[in-house]
Nucleic acid binder design. Structure first.
Lengths: 349, 349
DNA sequence: CACAACTGTCGAACCGGTTCGACGAACCGG
DNA sequence: CCGGTTCGTCGAACCGGTTCGACAGTTGTG
């Protein structure tokens, strides 16, 4: 029984002493970076196992200039629907671990300051930014930082970083196209709250504008509104919208909170989907399952975006030649997951 | 304009050279651990500011044996309602930062292995464990680790760690008491799924047993069931329960998914709360707001629990004398947040 | 006025790894 | 049998901080 909380730290020096070789030999035996006799290699490995050796991360970082940690900068705004965020975080963290990296989660409200801190102190080898705004104040700092960065969310200026996001323009068009093909001619689009847009959540505009344009081209009426992201309000807003546009036969939701609220709104109004109203949302499959959302939706693929960002980041981190490779901007194509909530509009009465 | 991604690392040696003093003097000037002339102190401070000096975290960790990082071990099980987890994570991460610590988020499925890794490699000064099971396999490793640990969730054996949790026994009793006082005599209690319990989620039992006992003492009928945590299923289960026990006038929910599903179930059945059915849940205020849950509930206080755990952890970390102080086990008393979903039972028809 | 105490600074060692250059021994071909 | 490789190992330096002990100079005390 080792004493609890014992300060028995095993260093590579202990290994070397136990085996009777120099520290450098022990190091080479473990890393395999130089030829070491089979016998010594085995004895070092055994000693390491028996003594329970784990290299000191700080020392390793100091010597190799690699921490094997990536920074994850998440930003939570009070006017956002937080549950949707978790999946991005898990996507990043799980992928990082698969690739041998740990994740430093930073939720500080002042993201720029936090980024400077973890970057300048060399705590991380690279950084993933979530929830990137159109003109994000973290970007200039990231560009000047020695570590590479990957973004989930597309800002106005993508130079110097790798960017991954859903193709929101495509998503907007796909929503309208799909409804149009089924015969709908009047739609309601509920976006995120306006402050989200003002803060720089450009994806809202990207989807909205593309949807508007396509609607115009196809001669479809589109009522576009910004909805709240809080739950008592967004339900009322949905009700008010359905009251205001009785001829609308299709509902497009670019607002997770609205999607989560819609089932009870429909039930309360005695409406059924798709018989009375066709609905397309935009959220993740995981989200749909969690909230039992029966609506077809464009998959927002948070786990996949997180994964792509980390993969690319790790590629850059692990090979210095890639540091200067051209930036990647990958907008993943929208995919409509059919959950049966769209159909031909009800026959005009 | 510094070259983008420039490798211009400023070390304390650069500061010393710029000012014309030794490295040790620069270090003392910055830390204040020895008397340094005002003039040198100011010039060092200025040089540090001008050159943008930030100490290298790895080097500092190596020298001081302190990383200023705490590990956060979260565990996500597929049969759990993940959104509730995020608030614990934020509680921990935000509090840690307030106290000057960063947070290493570990979501690896093999928590024990992950804990051994980050502990043995000295990446963290302390560890917070979330979602602690009755007989958690991370505990023996934590006890043997050199770092202190704090738990959110109470295991069977609390020795060697600090434990913070809701008083679930008290919560169970409070739920029953409250309903009884209002005049209810037949209740339904929906707990977490049975696998959560089997996996060691003892809090489910603690609430359930206490509620049962109190119900027996007060001569109240209590139908206790385990409900699913997935959304299509839990809704059906709720419906089935209401069918099976038409005389029950009160519903107790120790299952977030059930709470999230209940509003639409009630609406669909044409029931209103509290007129037709009194409801008490157990979740956080934040959660209630997010999902617009109109039910009175026992506050599960994830942010507060996370905060308490981190505070205590940091106390232990920062003062070696506290390392051997007796363990803390704090069960915060249940508080009923009245959202108006309980009332006297409807007059017996 | 001699000696002690204090102030401010420096050099060196240390934390625990990695890595470079050197070097002896074994091995090879000519 | 000699010179050049290759193999296996070692010692030393380095990464960038902190901290201990020493020491010169100043101030204070009896």
């Amino acid at each position: 029984m080792a004493p609890p909380k014992g300060e028995n730290v095993v260093t590579i020096g202990d290994i070397a002493r136990a085996v009777g070789v120099s520290r450098s030999t022990a190091s080479y035996a473990l890393s395999g970076k130089r030829a070491i006799s089979l016998e010594v290699r085995q004895r070092v490995a055994q000693a390491a196992r028996e003594l329970g050796y784990t290299p000191n991360a700080g020392a390793k970082a100091l010597a190799t200039a690699q921490t094997m940690v990536i920074g994850l900068l998440a930003q939570f705004h009070s006017d956002e629907f937080a549950p949707a965020m978790l999946q991005y975080i898990l996507g990043v963290s799980d992928t990082a671990r698969e690739l041998g990296y740990d994740t430093l989660l930073v939720t500080e409200s002042d993201g720029a300051k936090a980024l400077r801190r973890i970057s300048a102190s060399r705590m991380v080898d690279g950084v993933v930014l979530l929830n990137v705004a159109q003109d994000d104040d973290r970007l200039p700092i990231l560009r000047a930082a020695p570590q590479p960065g990957a973004l989930v969310g597309k800002p106005a200026d993508c130079t110097g970083v790798d960017v991954f996001d859903l193709d929101f323009e495509g998503a907007g068009r796909l929503m309208v196209d799909h409804m149009h093909e089924l015969g709908h001619r009047e739609l309601i689009l509920v976006s995120q709250p306006e402050h989200v847009v003002e803060r720089g959540g450009a994806y809202v505009w990207r989807l909205l504008d593309a949807a508007r344009e396509r609607a115009r081209d196809l001669d479809v009426r589109l009522h576009a509104v910004f909805g709240e992201s809080g739950q008592p309000e967004i339900g009322r807003t949905l009700n008010a919208l359905l009251d205001a546009h009785p001829a609308a036969t299709g509902l497009l939701l670019n607002n997770e909170a609205a999607a989560a609220a819609l089932p009870s709104v429909l039930t309360a109004r005695g409406l059924r989907s798709p018989e009375d109203l066709s609905v397309i949302g935009r959220y993740s499959d995981e989200f749909a399952r969690m909230f039992s959302l029966p609506f077809s939706s464009i998959e927002s693929a948070p786990d996949r975006l997180g994964m792509l960002a980390v993969r690319q980041l790790v590629r850059r981190v692990s090979s210095p030649t890639l540091r200067t490779e051209p930036d990647v901007v990958e907008l993943i194509p929208p995919e409509l997951v059919d959950r049966g909530s769209t159909a031909r509009p009800p026959a005009t009465s």
